[in-house]
Structures are given as structure tokens and as C-alpha cells.
Write a protein that binds this DNA or RNA. Structure first.
Lengths: 156, 156
DNA sequence: CTTGCTGCAAATTCTTTGCACTCAC
DNA sequence: GTGAGTGCAAAGAATTTGCAGCAAG
């Protein structure tokens, strides 16, 4: 896996060290098929190596983000992480009803992104972009966005 | 102010009540020139009415969101709230370096939004949309994105 | 051996909740 | 009056930090 090598190299260059825990985090990220929370990552690691602490997972994720190997974005109050190298740069569609996530290539966004650059001088970080909305399935079922309007139901 | 009337009406329709605290929250939102956190709102209310509790601010914000008078989005781990009626529907550019926020009209996004609708059946909630990136100022100064890579500095 | 890294526990931050009392209607 | 709303305090959830011992280079 190329990104383990990249990780190792970058650690060396910075005078940091490769450890079993860091390998485990990276490996667990590889195995994940969709963005995972720190907690989920911790649990999947715990399956084979029960002594890795959650705080170590957080520290490693921070490190991996710094090295631009992993991206994280906020979803419903928790951060979900994902290997960048795995799917290439892309953005996410996050359904506000069911919470499902779809990764989409950035192609469709290019016009939008360059419009923002031209008109506002704003440089979009597309890998960090999360689009809130309703997925097809939920739309068809007449679902409504969840956060934070679920607390009580319209009495009408 | 039209939205206070709207608030009042909607409360009545639901059998809920207008209170001083709710008026204060709404009024503080009006006075805010940019999206505010619950904490900031609480402080600005406290200036004139020190006994309003932070939890009441949260509860009122939840209510206002439900009535679609206020929108909230996540920025750097905290939620920032904003009156919808004040500026009309729009999206936000959030600079990952300085944290500044710019509201932009949704026009530029239309192509993108309809592309997502067509290709993925995804209905974007544009008022909830926060675009991460770098503002012009920070870009010119060669700044780099902040969260969560600020924890240590590149030794190179 | 040196110093970065880890596990553990405690601390922080933002937000929510339980409850008795109060006030809008 | 009655039940919705409030303040207060405590609980929660996600994440961070301090520290002493461990281990990678």
C-alpha cells in the first residue's frame, strides 16, 4: 500500500516514528468502505489489538490529516475520516434524513468553484466539502431533513 | 419586524407561547451582523437581561430552526446561527485560515445544484451549505487551511 | 540512550436533559 | 388554573491534554 510508505517517509522526514498503533489506524482506514468516525475506527482496531487507546486514534488521525493523507469532515456532531489516496479527491453528499454519504467526483463542481474564485477570490477546498441535502431515496419517501428539526413533530 | 410576528403566529398555531426570553433571542439575532454561536448570543442577551439561561437560548434556537426562521451550520466544532429572513436564502464561504464568513447568493450554485439533482437525485439544502476554503486575503498572504492541521508546524 | 509515543485518567467544550417552580394564556 | 417555559444543575458526547512509563531509532 502506497500510502503506508508515504506515511513512513513523511514521518522520517519530520523526525517522527512509525509505530504499531499508527500502522493499525492506517490499515483500519484502508479497510473502511466509507468515512468512519474515530470511535468506529477505534472499535475496528480493537478487534485485533484491544490495547490501542481512543486518544491515540485521535492523535494519529490528526497527524494523518496534517500529512494530507486523510481528510475529515463534520457530520451530525462527529467527525468522519477517510483516506484521501483511496478514492482521489472528491466531495460528499450527506443526506440530512438518513445520514447516508455519497462520494462524488469534483467535476460537476468545477464551474461553481471557479465562479467563487473569480467573483470572491475564494479558493474552495473541495476535499473538505460536504453538501447537505436529501438523497434520492429519502426524497422519494417524502422524508424531511433531520438536524436539528427532529426534536418534535408538527402537530398539524 | 416581520419575523417576530411570524414567530408569534407560528407559536400560537402550535399552542406554544411567546415569552420575554424568546423575544430577546430573536432580537439578539436581528442585531447580529454575522452568524453567531449560542454562546455569543447568550452573552449579548445577558448585557440587558442577565438571567436568561444558555439552555433557554439553545431551546429557542432549536425552535426557531424548526419554524425555518433561523438556520444553523457547523463551523469549527460549534454551531453558528443566523436569521433566514434577514438576508434571504444564501450559502456561506468559510475561510479555514482566519475563520471569516462570507454570505453569497445561491445564484452561482444553481448549475451545480441542478447537476447533483439530475445525476444523483440529490436535493441540496442550500441554506445549510458551508463551503470550506481560503478567503482572498488569506490566499494572498500565503496562509494555509487551519483545521485541524494547526496543531504543529512543519519543521521544514 | 534519547526523545517521541502511548495508555490512562482527567479535563474541556458544546449541547442536552431532568426537575421543581413560574408565568403566559 | 393549567400546562408550556424557565433557570439551575447535572448529564452527555466528542475530543483534547497532562503525565509517567515504554519503545523506536
Amino acid at each position: 500500500m502506497a500510502c503506508e510508505a508515504a506515511f513512513r517517509d513523511e514521518l522520517r522526514r519530520r523526525g517522527l516514528r512509525m509505530t504499531l498503533q499508527r500502522e493499525l489506524v492506517l490499515s483500519a482506514l484502508h479497510q473502511a468502505s466509507e468515512p468512519v468516525s474515530a470511535e468506529e475506527l477505534h472499535q475496528s482496531i480493537a478487534a485485533q489489538s484491544p490495547n490501542v487507546d481512543l486518544s491515540t486514534v485521535y492523535r494519529t488521525l490528526g497527524l494523518l490529516q496534517e500529512l494530507r493523507l486523510v481528510s475529515g469532515y463534520d457530520s451530525a456532531g462527529e467527525t468522519r475520516y477517510e483516506l484521501l489516496s483511496l478514492h482521489g479527491p472528491h466531495l460528499h453528499l450527506l443526506c440530512q434524513s438518513c445520514g447516508c454519504i455519497e462520494g462524488v467526483p469534483p467535476d460537476d463542481a468545477h464551474g461553481f468553484v471557479s465562479a467563487l474564485a473569480e467573483r470572491f477570490g475564494f479558493e474552495v477546498q473541495i476535499e473538505q466539502l460536504v453538501i447537505p441535502g436529501l438523497c434520492q431515496r429519502c426524497r422519494e419517501r417524502g422524508k424531511v431533513a433531520r438536524p436539528p428539526w427532529v426534536r418534535f413533530v408538527d402537530p398539524a
